[in-house]
Write a protein that binds this DNA or RNA. Sequence first.
RNA 1: GCCGCAUUCGUCUAGAGGCCCAGGACACCGCCCUCUCAAGGCGGAGAUCACCGGUUCGAAUCCGGUAUGCGGUACCA
Length: 520
Amino acid sequence: MTELPSARHTPGMAIRCRFAPSPTGPLHVGGARTALYNFLFARKLGGSFILRLEDTDVARSELEYERDVLDSLHWLGIEWDEGPEVAGLPARGPYGPYRQMQRLDLYRAAADRLLAEDKAYPCFCSPEELAADRKEQETAHQPPHYVGRCAALSVEERAGRQAEGRRAVIRFRVGQGVVEFDDLVRGHVAIDTTALGGDLVIVRSDGTPLYHFTVVVDDAQMAITHVIRGEEHLSNTPKHILLFRALGAEVPVFAHLPLILNPDRTKMSKRKSQTAVAAYRAEGFVKEALVNYLALLGWSPGTEEEIFSLDELAQRFELERVHSAGAVFDRPRLEWVNGQWIRRLSDDELIEGALPYLRDRLSEQEAGGAQVRLPGEDDLRALLPLVRERMPLLSSISDLVDFLFVTEIAVEPRLLVPKRWDASTTLEALSEARRLIADVGAVSFEADELEPPLRALCEDRGWKAGDLFMAIRVAITGRTAAPPLFDTLVALGFERTLQRLDAAREALANEKGGSHGTAT
RNA sequence: GCCGCAUUCGUCUAGAGGCCCAGGACACCGCCCUCUCAAGGCGGAGAUCACCGGUUCGAAUCCGGUAUGCGGUACCA
């Protein structure tokens, strides 16, 4: 029996695809990308995107994770057309319920049908028997498979075992032959059923269904036309196809996505990489960047453009252009994309995104004993031109401007002295600069007014302007890297600029006096 | 072990027989710009297209094999 490819999509039929996470952990970037590709595919072709929760692994499923998965998808802008009830909102769509634990009777009915048609059978083999089989196969260098001990039991034999009190699993008859299908990403795939490990268990002895069964029952009942999922399912696809056929259902088209990898090229894992979408969000990545980056991890538009909004992606996305090889998750590149998107955000979006980080930073400092003023939206709005292009992450805002909102900054005296200068020169320069700034500022404290006289001073004294500016920068920010100096002075304000200059001079004088005192 | 999938610069990728002694981006290096940091501009280094055979006038592109990697092979999902 050689099967012809049957994974054909009927033209004209509405496209339906789905993302089916199991809430056993926070949403992983790999899952997010799978969801994204499904979403984009549906949007591009005017189909429906369905969300289904695979929560049959009761032991590992947690409500907290379910919320994380849902929140993360929502944050990314990946909205579903049909899905379960969440946060008080009712379920949407005609094929519900969309939670597997609420679909148990559907699986039971499907299993009963397969049993009635003898496409499946009860298997009474004990775990010990199975383990013994496996061991034997191993020594004989055979691939592990179910030997079929219970495949041909008579009605009497089954009744007998039941009477002994043995509990049965339900096994699906896999049969002989080659299963073939055309994967939208991988092309033609053919797998012999002998590689499937024998008749597979679809219902546990406690009556609960197994993944390979529920996924097919659900995809069939929900009329899924395209199954877009991770590559780890490729080898199991023949089982699914056989099950679809046995159930008399249309076999969907499959598309197996390449894996996202750790830097060592193994499947990306929590153990070796940061995987949770929520963790990237917390760090200060914007949703546009994560979507953009993930879309390009395994897919390319074929042009040299690389910044795309979700809407643009939905217009351009093609499954046929998805790569077949795994892709290493490259954080530096993600940060670059993030910087690109931060530049593109509106002022309000940027403020909304960044302000909480700044306030958190200042609150921390306040808790540490510092006196701070918590900035509001307008404070940050005024600073946007100074910081926007300096932010790889939303959280970068803190290092850039926090010194503007604390009453006193800590200045390391050594940092005040530029490389080409000594402490005396620095002290003198700072004093001269203080005088000039006080004079100019008394009339008008503007960036344009401040710069020329200070440059003239340097010219006069034979100083490098950069050295003077660096000394001032450290004096008022405590850092050697900061936004442009004169705008920063203005943002700080006339009074506070003079205060910090004075404090720096004092610190320098003390330091200098101290070291000289001991030397002479 | 068996089955499957994959293999183009460090990384993400373009490339569907001649346009490729392989293009772009990130990262890296240098120069320019410049008050620091960024950003931006320009330039550099970086891939014998995993390897070996074959097909062809011609192969990164087609075919076969090998190697390596990854995935699957559960009463997990």
